[in-house]
């Protein structure tokens, strides 16, 4: 069909074509601004009560803790936008942290990049197992990664036993990874921020990235559009695993002491961060940047409560409360947006 079609009667939709887009954009921007606003509000209130909260040392700790969760959230977001979930990230982080850190004890003078590669390899292997069962076996990811959460932790405990990697066995240059800062911000944080930027760019500008959103938005239509659904989902789990593997090495460098409990329970914090950060739990929308802010918010609350001397119980209660708020808010936004967009595009008029 190369002949241009007759243009019958000019524009037939009377409504302004621009309005709905602006509205949608505004609301989604508001969604990410919302997290930042809550974050700023929390910091302000905490600082008023306890002036020491904004000390450089505190900020550094918050950033370091949030960095690990934000890194995990990067991988988790890729999984969640395609309507899946990866619950095994905490266990993968633990296994990778111990195995990679113990390399320093086994192989003298091993270069640090090799240790990172080892962590990456361990994480990738776990991701391949998850992805293969989910994509090829067509088993729901919730069940599969819940199982591998326990299995990988089990393997970890089996290998580690009662041992632990202690700080003294790690080279100073490795420990320094978690210590050095640039203008008060830890170097690791900057590197992870760059990674998150790259991840956001990938999800926005590459076909395979957009296809993850398509799969999460409408799996049937994705298949009909000729998207290799199984391959995309497989890849997202491999990436999530690989990222968790790297996060394990960072964790070891930061904490210095690694036993078999490293990373226990992280999966729930990560999923919370992703959802609080505006990623739809049933896929299709959300960004890794939002997820990273979600991680930062949860970590800030954690530290703030500690500084204020409030029981850690409240930390979890508040995290849960935020989660409910985020999900309710997202649902409300979707409903509002749908009806607003309907109203603004009168039926064919």
């Amino acid at each position: 069909m190369t002949v241009p079609l007759a243009k019958p009667g000019g524009g037939l939709t009377a409504s302004s074509a621009e309005n709905p887009k602006r509205l949608a954009d505004a609301i989604f921007r508001a969604r990410e601004f919302g997290i930042v606003a809550v974050l700023v509000g929390f910091v302000a209130v905490t600082t008023t009560i306890q002036h020491r909260f904004l000390e450089a040392q505190n900020i550094k700790f918050i950033f370091l803790d949030a960095t690990i969760f934000a890194l995990l959230a990067l991988g988790e977001t890729m999984v969640v936008v395609s309507r899946n979930v990866d619950l095994s990230v905490g266990s993968v982080l633990g296994l990778s942290a111990y195995l990679s850190a113990s390399l320093f004890g086994h192989v003298h003078g091993i270069p640090i990049p090799v240790v990172f590669l080892a962590g990456l390899g361990i994480g990738t292997a776990c991701g391949v197992v998850n992805g293969a069962i989910i994509a090829v076996g067509r088993v729901p990811s919730l069940v599969v990664t819940l199982a591998t959460l326990y299995i990988i932790r089990g393997v970890d405990v089996l290998i580690v036993g009662g041992n632990q990697v202690v700080v003294s066995s790690l080279p100073d240059s490795f420990i320094a990874i978690g210590q050095s800062t640039l203008l008060g911000v830890p170097d690791v944080t900057l590197v992870v921020a760059a990674l998150i930027g790259a991840g956001a760019y990938y999800l926005r500008t590459f076909r395979s990235g957009r296809e993850l959103y398509a799969i999460g938005s409408n799996p049937d239509a994705a298949r009909l559009a000729g998207i290799p659904t199984a391959r995309r989902i497989f890849t997202s789990f491999v990436l999530s695993g690989a990222i968790a593997g790297i996060a394990g090495v960072v964790w070891a460098a930061y904490y210095g002491t690694v036993d078999s409990t490293a990373g226990t329970g992280y999966e729930l914090t990560v999923v919370s961060a992703v959802v609080v950060g505006g990623v739809a739990i049933f896929g299709g929308s959300g960004s890794v940047i939002g997820a990273a802010f979600g991680a930062l918010l949860l970590e800030t609350i954690n530290t703030a409560l500690y500084v204020l001397g409030i029981s850690a119980f409240w930390d979890q209660a508040i995290a849960g409360f935020l989660l409910i708020c985020a999900i309710t808010l997202d649902h409300g936004i979707t409903v509002m947006l749908t009806s607003a967009l309907r109203r603004r595009s009168p039926r064919g008029a």
Binding site: G11, S15, E18, T334
Partner: peptide
């Protein structure tokens, strides 16, 4: 869309489009 004589913003999300659109 212009060839079809229909005005619809290519950048808006499709949630909320009428069946006709």
């Amino acid at each position: 869309l212009e060839r079809l004589g229909v005005r619809l913003d290519p950048g808006r999300i499709s949630r909320g489009l009428s069946i006709a659109d």
